[in-house]
Computed example of a mutant assay.
Amino acid sequence: MTFLTRLALPAAAAMAMATASFAQSLDAAANGDPQVSSPFAFAESGRMADQAEAARKEAEESGARVIGGELAQQGAWPWQVGLLIAGRPVGTESHFCGGSLILDQWVLTAAHCVYMQDDQGYFDLQPQQIQVVAGTNKLAPGQGDVIPVAGIYRNQNYNPDGFDSDIALIKLQRAPNVPYQTIKVPDAQFGEQIDVTGVPTIVTGWGLINGGQHPEDMYQAEIQILGRDQCNGAIMEARAQAAAEPFIQALQILDVKGNDAEAAWSALITKAKAPLTENMLCSGTYEGGKTSCQGDSGGPLVVPMTDGSYIQAGVVSWGFADSETMTCVETALFSAYTKVSNFVPWMEQVIAQN
């Protein structure tokens, strides 16, 4: 395998400055309105269609562009599938997540795509609520093969508060009746070999359009693995900067000064949880502007091999969302992806038992 030349790591402070403008907005989007935090609910509510129409009108005036990506050629990425709301025709209004065929009747996706939130709490989607479209790069009526779902299996350790173990399997009632391919997943050893800064990756899906548009056509973006510690450091530094001013105000109100103030700050920072766990990959670019976006969730992050094949390193999990526009931050340096190799034993067990 040939990797891209590893780039020199920029200073954490520089990344933090670039990250600071959107570090908090992920939390706002993830923990706020259930109809925004759940892709299925957002699509089902009709708000996604309203957002897409507003973005389309804005794009006509300003000229939309892909977020660092390009149009995928027809037939490219033949393992890519789309998750749709059952009973609706193939289209952008019924599509809510992506996925990948890892076996003829098994789709790999994100747990947050099938674990839904409402005012009463969280619950799992049922197979009859969704369907899968395979064998097409275009989300339009009559395109691809729409397949009913036989079962949905969310990883039992998935934590929606932070998206750890954000992975799920979907069993199809049958194999697709259109041309398709399955994508290989790496074992633990190879998973570590590709979890290295500078390794080239490609993310695909129907959510990479600037301005919040939900495109009919599939897009692809070439990015690369970034160091998990570096990505965590950038986010944590940005969060610390955002927290500093209200913390100082609290100290002033409570009349805490000197060494006591420093100790309180140190204790607070020590308790802060790193956003990217060992079950996640960080992938993006140092210049920003290449990222997965809403609608890409659950889709594959693949690594090109020297023989022309690909292996799936990650599942699109979370990124930086703008709490006002309810879409991704287009200048984001990176997004987080579930590290597939950590879950191969779980996948093998689920498939064997079902």
Rank of each mutant, 00 (worst) to 15 (best):
L101F: 11
I102F: 08
L103C: 08
D104S: 12
Q105C: 00
Q105E: 15
L108S: 12
L108C: 10
L108Q: 15
T109W: 04
A110P: 01
C113T: 09
D118C: 05
D118G: 05
D118M: 03
D119M: 01
G121M: 04
G121P: 09
Y122R: 09
F123W: 10
F123Q: 11
L125D: 06
L125Y: 03
P127D: 06
Q129V: 01
V132M: 10
N137M: 07
K138T: 14
L139T: 03
L139Y: 09
G142K: 10
G144Q: 04
D145Y: 08
P148N: 14
A150E: 14
G151Q: 08
Y153L: 04
Y153P: 02
Y153K: 09
Y153T: 07
R154P: 07
N157R: 14
D161A: 14
D161F: 15
G162C: 15
G162M: 15
A168F: 09
A168H: 12
L169D: 03
L169T: 03
L169R: 02
K171H: 06
K171A: 13
K171F: 02
L172F: 00
Q173A: 11
A175N: 00
A175D: 00
P176R: 06
N177D: 13
V178S: 13
Y180E: 06
I183W: 06
I183N: 06
K184W: 00
V185P: 05
V185G: 04
V185C: 07
P186H: 00
A188K: 08
Q193I: 00
D195G: 00
T197H: 13
G198P: 11
V199A: 08
I202S: 05
T204A: 15
W206R: 05
I209H: 03
G211T: 05
G211I: 01
G212D: 12
H214S: 15
H214F: 15
P215M: 07
Y219R: 11
Q220I: 00
E222N: 13
E222D: 13
I223K: 04
